[in-house]
Design a protein around this nucleic acid. Sequence first.
DNA 1: TTGTATGCGTTATCAT
DNA 2: ATGATAACGCATACAA
Lengths: 348, 348
Amino acid sequence: MKKYSDPPSGQQAENKAPKRVTILDVARAARVSAGTVSNALSGKRQVDPETRARIDAAIAALGYVPNRAARALRHGRSNLIAVCSSMPWQVAGGSSRLGFLMEVVAAVAPVALRHGIAVTLLPAEAEAEGFLDRIALDGAIVIEPLREDPFLRALRAQALPVVVIGQPPVPDWVHVDLDYPAVTRLLCDHLYGAGARRFPLLTGQEDRVVHEETIRAYRAFAAERGMVPEVLRLPEAAGEAGSAALMTERLARRDIDAVLVPVDTFASGVMAAARGLGLVVPHDLRIATRYDGLRARQEVPGLTAVDLNLPEAAAHCIRLLLALIAGEGVPPATPVAPPRLIPRGSTR
Amino acid sequence: MKKYSDPPSGQQAENKAPKRVTILDVARAARVSAGTVSNALSGKRQVDPETRARIDAAIAALGYVPNRAARALRHGRSNLIAVCSSMPWQVAGGSSRLGFLMEVVAAVAPVALRHGIAVTLLPAEAEAEGFLDRIALDGAIVIEPLREDPFLRALRAQALPVVVIGQPPVPDWVHVDLDYPAVTRLLCDHLYGAGARRFPLLTGQEDRVVHEETIRAYRAFAAERGMVPEVLRLPEAAGEAGSAALMTERLARRDIDAVLVPVDTFASGVMAAARGLGLVVPHDLRIATRYDGLRARQEVPGLTAVDLNLPEAAAHCIRLLLALIAGEGVPPATPVAPPRLIPRGSTR
DNA sequence: TTGTATGCGTTATCAT
DNA sequence: ATGATAACGCATACAA
């Protein structure tokens, strides 16, 4: 008896062509028709126990394993969805492997798996290399798209079911609303409540819808409170170091008492800049970020952040996507529970 | 002219059955045969410019998009590989979304993408739910398998090309050797060199090959130096909190001057325990971990860790896997560059 | 340069 | 309960 930990036969340079075993081979060996074998496997039709035994024996003897590509063709389902982010891998996966893409994948994957579908990751490069027409997908989730997002364009061209998580460029796209305006408002109010009277917003430079929404909400808050708004933008790829450099310069002017930094990588940079200038957080400078990831939790002091209810959002995404795949109609916008502030040392 | 940011028509509950456009429809519209359309698309044969124009027009008019499942069947390639980890998602993706699975994916995905193949994540649950026979895979990478790994068993049953990253249960599996014994040795030597004379090893409890190798190397080191070896094991799922609890108790005895904690999540727990007891790292207690992730870098002080050369390992994995998929023979073991210590404050 | 025919492996439909 | 047949959509060998 072979143990499963035996080396895989045929992986070495043995020249035996593996010659795939088909359902027809099994059928022949069991002296039945292919259709019967198929039914035995799927259980969609009654099959004589004795016949079944012969089939099982044949399957075991031949080592038959169904061809998934053929099934996918037949069923019109690949059981695979993509999670797309128009951020380059450098940013999305990140040198710290901590991008929002990974976060969303981490939230989406288990839900998807529970529904019998697997998840593949598609960063910006994938679109460029035309991955959407290389692999068989049942649908896709697009994270925080750009205003003119190549993934959305390509997905629509493919007529694939799509759910956007975050802000879609136009509200007609089926999307799960993370309500970034509310999130921004929450953070602004918190900073203000903590005593901050002048704080710039530091965010990404790309033409991402989420940035627009955030900036809009920030400006609205500033107008309301009579605070002078200041929006600093930095290329996403600049990362922690870029943020630290920019903010070291900005903080040197000593005219602000807090910074609102939605992107957590940038927030780390601001922390570094503050340290470099000898500023004590939160005493000399308060910092609040949006995404409550490992960075926010591990910084010293911890970064005040927001619980975006990602698991719930992910569950919605999958539910919606499955409905779309099934051809059912769904409402374009699905709300998640209101964002919840997670106050930490950085604003206390 | 429609802008691509328009809402996707048909996503709403319009009852129009989308009726897939096939290559044959295009052929008819362009008044050519299906084969010609196919060739025009693939460019594998010369096609008259004028015919080509008609075809292109038809494609555009009908919105034809090739069926990937059919191609996969035809070509015998799905352009998809899986990265499998027998760790449950809870641990692999982690509440901190920072498990080694994510790390490896982050390293593997860009390389794979560059070779035209996408990557899907399969945590332990996926095996249980039989995902390996739900999706069409060209091959798989298995991370730090268990001694009796269900993924390896299933993959062999499917006769799928497999590359193990880490320690395979038997050396015949094609694998990329991260050389954990050397890594362990490196850390032990470093701790010893930093003055530590008694340090337990805290690692995971599962029947994972990497743990065995690590423990073996640790014991060898202890024997050599005349240090009393002490191996503490904790269920992987216990996480940071479990580690903190266990080590709070252990550290209270005040008879050790360092801890070797390969699993970075556990290392965070040890740091927390030390803080709780008022122990100053590294003065009262030195800590070294293996995996140099965000945790190691963000802890205060930073955790001494090891550069495992993951990007290089990932590149090897893909290269080997592609070779196996192409039916070429490959050596069972591929080494990566020697591990390099990254000394940080936790052992200084 | 283009058309025709066949097969990839599976499953659904119809017949027995 | 089972068998025969067609079809899923594409790409190739071969013929023209």
